[in-house]
Design a protein around this nucleic acid. Structure first.
Lengths: 176, 176
DNA sequence: CCCTGGCTGTTACAGTGTAACGATCTCTGT
DNA sequence: ACAGAGATCGTTACACTGTAACAGCCAGGG
C-alpha cells in the first residue's frame, strides 16, 4: 500500500451529516487526479463523471440511478459501465459502497479502501454520515486478533435516525 | 462439510467458526418452538424447514438456494415464500442476514434481533463466525451518542481469512 | 354459519450485478 | 509512424435478489 497523506487532521470527528456538495465534489476530483498521477492510473471521463454524480448527490445512489443521470438523449450510459467505474473508484478509496442499500456514497475522508469507516444511515432523510473512530477500530482489531481472524475489509453500517431528523420528529409526534 | 477440529478452546465467546450442524439445528428449532409458544406466534412447517435448511448449512445461503433445497420434484417452493419465512425468522432473531452477501445464516447466540453481532466472513472457505463483543458495542454506542445518532439496527461484517484457512494457506505460499 | 386475520402459492415485475464479446483507446517498443 | 499488448468502454444477454398484488387455504371468534 502507499501514502494517503491528503487526509485531513481528523481524530474521529466529523463535519456534519453530509458535505456541501459542489465544494466536496471539486475536492474529490482533485484528489482523484492527484492519485491517478501518482499511481499511473487512468482517471477517465466516465470515471470522473461517475465520481461527480455520486459526490453531488449527498445521498446514496444506486448504480442504475447513476447511469440514468449520466445518460443524455442520444447518449445512453449502461449500468454495467457504471459498475466498472464504481469498481475503480471504490478500489482506490474515492467512493464507498453501502452494502445494506446497494448504493454508493463519496468518501468523505482521505483514508484508503481498506480502512474502517462507520456509516450512519438515516432512515428518515436517507443521508449518510461517514465517521472514523479509532476507538471502534481498536476494539474491532482486538476482537479479530482474539479470533485469529485476518481482516481484509470491514463493513460497519448503522441504520437509525440522524440528529436533525430526531429534532424534526419530536416536534410533531409524541415521545415513545 | 467437515469438522473444524483445528479450532481449539477459545477464551472469548464463540465456539468455533461454525457450529456442528445437526446439533445446532435441533437447538435452534427448540428455541423457535419455545419462542412461538411464549409470544403466540405460528412456527409453521415452512418456517421450520427454512430454519433447518439454514442451520444445517453452516455457510451463508441465498434465498433461492434455500428455495431449491426445500423443493422436491412435484413440490416446488417459490423464493417469495422463502423470503417471507426468512422475514419471520430474522424478525425473531433466529437467523441473520449477511448484507454483504445477500445471504442468511443461523443465529449462533440467543440474543435478540436488535442486538449487535459481529460477523467474520472467510473469503476462502465461506464460513461465517458470529461473535459478540461488549467492548465493540460500547465504543459504537459512544460514537453514536457523540454524533447524536439514534441507532435502530447495526451491521458489522468483516471479510477476511479465518484462522483455519490461514494455516492451510501459509503452508503452500510464502509470507507477505 | 360467516367473518376476520394470518399464512401460503402463484404470477408478474422491478432492481442488482456479472459474463462475454467486440470495438476503441493508450501506451509502449521498434 | 507502425504494430502489438493491455486497459477501457459499449453492447447484449443473462443470472440473481427482492417485492407487489391477488387468490386460495386454514384457524379462531362472533
Amino acid at each position: 500500500m502507499d501514502e494517503h497523506g491528503a487526509c485531513g487532521p481528523h481524530d474521529h470527528a466529523h463535519d456534519g451529516p453530509v458535505a456541501p456538495g459542489p465544494a466536496r465534489t471539486a475536492d474529490l476530483v482533485a484528489r482523484a487526479e492527484r492519485l491517478a498521477q501518482d499511481r499511473g492510473l487512468q482517471f477517465t471521463a466516465l470515471r470522473r463523471r461517475t465520481l461527480e454524480v455520486v459526490a453531488e448527490e449527498g445521498r446514496p445512489l444506486g448504480a442504475y440511478d447513476i447511469a440514468e443521470r449520466l445518460s443524455a438523449p442520444g447518449k445512453r450510459v449502461a449500468a454495467v459501465s457504471v459498475y466498472r467505474a464504481l469498481d475503480f473508484l471504490t478500489e482506490h478509496g474515492l467512493v464507498h459502497r453501502i452494502a445494506s442499500r446497494n448504493a454508493f456514497v463519496p468518501c468523505e475522508h482521505g483514508h484508503g479502501a481498506g480502512e474502517s469507516a462507520v456509516f450512519l444511515i438515516c432512515r428518515r432523510c436517507g443521508s449518510v454520515d461517514e465517521t472514523i473512530s479509532t476507538e471502534i477500530e481498536r476494539s474491532l482489531d482486538r476482537t479479530l486478533a482474539q479470533a485469529g481472524f485476518k481482516p481484509a475489509s470491514r463493513i460497519v453500517e448503522i441504520e437509525g435516525e440522524c440528529e436533525a431528523c430526531q429534532g424534526r420528529h419530536e416536534a410533531s409526534l409524541p415521545p415513545d
